[in-house]
């Protein structure tokens, strides 16, 4: 395969967006952004902008998909037509269908679905703006939305990709690194249990490169997991602070 020669790592060892090889892009998360959903989360990971919504547990429709011993989990990963440079058809593509499936499987491990038999838990991941590693950011947001919905989870799943650019292993590829790089390795990880719940790879890596990539990917997932927990708690902490502050100011006035 011939690729146009683009230098992804500069002379100074920094990447096209000025990051070091082991540096994450800036991440911002917010929980409870949608009123009508049972749980929701918004994430900005690099240039990715993603909303995840969770509905349920609710009655399974059509009824025959319900399972007698646990909840069914449905997942839809969808890219908005305006999320990429060239308009994307809003109809689900083959890629989106596949991503929906792997995302669902990576989250299923963490959900204690046996608590709600015969119901369905529906996850919607909407990519508003896409960058490299949108499936990982989607998993990160969706798991946060599940936690926000009050669905019992073993823990919150975090995800991050690792890539190989200019022959070197680099963390968290941006769009151009994803497309021009030699390999891409998305990882979803449960930090407490130490379980990898998603591992895909395109391109090629040697065994040593793979091990190195997995190690830095897992370390990044642990970092992201801490951010997730903080974002989830922040929703309640800010209500608490506002309420108690209001109370104090009123108390002072009286």
């Amino acid at each position: 395969m011939d690729k146009p020669e683009i230098k992804l790592i500069g002379e100074d060892g920094l990447r096209t967006d000025g990051r070091r090889l082991d540096e994450l892009r800036p991440i911002k998360m917010e929980v409870g952004v949608l009123d009508k959903a049972d749980g929701s989360a918004y994430i900005e990971h690099g240039k990715n902008r993603i909303i995840a919504a969770v509905y349920g547990p609710r009655e399974a429709h059509p009824k025959h998909i319900a399972l007698a011993d646990r909840a069914v989990i449905k997942c839809r990963y969808h890219m908005a037509p305006f999320s990429v440079e060239e308009r994307k058809s809003p109809a689900p593509s083959r890629r989106e269908l596949e991503l929906s499936k792997v995302i669902r499987e990576s989250l299923e491990t963490s959900v204690m679905s046996e608590v709600y038999p015969r119901t369905s838990i529906d996850i919607f991941i909407e990519i508003l703006q896409s960058d490299g590693g949108s499936r990982c950011a989607g998993i990160t947001a969706a798991s946060l939305a599940l936690a926000d919905a009050g669905i019992p989870l073993k823990e919150i799943v975090a995800a991050c990709a690792v890539c190989k650019i200019d022959g070197k292993i680099a963390l968290d590829p941006s769009d151009i690194e994803d497309k021009q790089g030699d390999a891409d390795l998305p990882i979803a990880y449960m930090s407490k249990a130490g379980l990898v719940t998603l591992l895909q790879m395109d391109g090629s890596l040697t065994e040593d490169e793979f091990n190195q990539a997995l190690d830095i990917g897992i370390a990044a997932c642990k970092k992201i997991n801490e951010l997730q927990i903080e974002a989830l708690k922040q929703k309640y902490i800010s209500v608490k602070e506002q309420a108690e502050e209001r109370h104090e100011s009123q108390g002072a006035a009286a």
Binding site: D38, G39, R58, Y116, A147, G150, I151, P152, L153, K192
Partner: peptide, 23 residues
């Protein structure tokens, strides 16, 4: 471990999490 967002409490020898959300 906790399995839900909530407030942790120790009652006698039992740990519970009072949920803040749920159906």
């Amino acid at each position: 471990y906790a399995s839900r967002i909530g407030l942790a409490e120790l009652v006698a020898n039992k740990l519970i999490v009072v949920p803040l959300k749920g159906c």
